[in-house]
Design a protein around this nucleic acid. Structure first.
Lengths: 255, 255
DNA sequence: CAGTGGTCTAGACCACGAA
DNA sequence: TCGTGGTCTAGACCACTGT
């Protein structure tokens, strides 16, 4: 820990943890902090870069640097029963989910995800969940018109697009298998803008596809989940345990 | 794209993609690149920082900057059948897995993970997988002595510690449920050192616990997976489909 | 406008690794 | 020792935001 900028970052972390600057209020200007620590501005900015990439502060050009609300961690779970039980305690009055619907054509990436031709017509559902007016997750769901005609979900309380699956179910589309592919990366410029995070914070990128009995992809989803706000949960039961559970519980057939 | 350093990063990306500098050979010195682009060294270093965080280059203090081998992406899958089928095409002669075994006592974090008291004796298995002599994944597995006495796995071809589960199985410990908790974050200094990555690249952090029929945690695992080299796969079958598959396939009982 | 953060300069000196 | 990347300076000027 010989580096000056890491020492300063440590000190700032301590001050933030101690509540020196109220959440959502301006920290001292960079020039003032630099003077206080007797370093040049580029050095101080290296420290702030560290804090920003850790999600501790939020920088607003022309306004100032702000301590970010710690924000509870929310779970995304493939297993719907888990999602409910785990997410419930975290969902408060400040949480909300917005939904936009659009008609789009499959580009190369979506065509590959959904196993369709480029240009195939799709319905796009974009869910953005918020906590305390601050964006927390981005979920984009694509349903081929060949699978189900565009429709508007009645309620959309889940940030993960459960309501779209309910739509499918209502149209008689039965999901037999769901596959999730999870990677860690940085957000694109657009994703960072929508989620109001820096392009230097890690996000979980989840590609989800749901298929029916004939292995047709009936839903593809792209989720972008800031790593410091969201975790992904998976549970695998051994064959014996799973079978017993299902038999005793009368589990619904689709996730 | 007005920023000079982003323009330069773009140009360097293009040059790297074009194979201008052979993999694992030195790029021109930063001072030379700065002169070539007619910028100061801090500006050029901002460009290199971008490439580094994208995993495109590797910086070695006192030696130089190197283009990183693109590296095939490998899948970690909770479902063992998937892990085999997906990973097989990627596993070449240059892949290897090292294993170290140690006796440790549970710290606060491990005690919480394994649902034990702090100080409980554990066996620690550390798997590091390599591709072309370059580290690719870090898996730390902890087995309480109360569950199984320390033992050395015969083979350890899997980077995810399957051999430890085989050990457990051989001792009559039956895994009934496996839970995985996935987050995106930056590696700790130690993790970055072991994996030979920068502390500014995203990694997937997986916390895995396996429990037996009495809900006792028999294995806890901490996996650190560089986001640009590894992806995590999960598949969920609907109850009906899963039951049918198991009945017809005579699936083994433990993962 | 004034004040903020964002970018950039043209150096300096230090720390590391190899010869 | 030498060449490399790592850190740091003391400014300058630009871009953004609210008044």
């Amino acid at each position: 820990m010989a580096n000056r900028y890491e020492q300063i970052a440590d000190d700032l972390r301590r001050l933030i943890a101690a509540g020196t600057w109220p959440v959502s209020e301006r920290m001292p200007a960079e020039a003032e902090l630099a003077a206080r620590y007797r370093v040049s501005t580029p050095t101080l900015r290296m420290s702030l870069d560290l804090l920003q990439s850790e999600g501790l502060i939020e920088k607003r050009h022309g306004i100032g640097n702000f301590v970010r609300r710690p924000g509870q961690r929310v779970a995304y779970a493939s297993d719907r029963r888990l999602a409910v039980s785990q997410a419930a305690p975290d969902v408060g009055a400040d949480d909300s989910v917005s939904l936009d619907i659009a008609m789009v054509e499959a580009d190369a990436r979506l065509a590959s995800l959904l196993d369709l031709r480029v240009g195939s017509p799709l319905t796009e559902y974009v869910f953005i969940s918020h906590q305390c007016a601050s964006p927390r997750s981005l979920t984009r769901i694509y349903v081929p018109h060949a699978v189900a005609s565009p429709a508007v979900p009645e309620a959309h309380g889940s940030p993960w697009g459960d309501s779209v699956r309910q739509l499918l179910s209502a149209e008689g589309v039965e999901v037999v298998r769901t596959t999730e592919r999870v990677t860690a990366r940085f957000p694109t410029a657009n994703e960072a803008h929508v989620l109001n995070i820096s392009t230097r914070t890690s996000v979980l990128a989840v590609e989800r596809t749901s298929t029916d009995a004939s292995d047709r992809v009936v839903e593809g989803a792209l989720l972008v989940l800031p790593g410091d706000r969201i975790e992904v949960l998976f549970t695998t039961r051994s064959a014996v345990a799973a079978t017993e559970e299902m038999e005793t519980a009368g589990w619904p057939r689709t996730g």
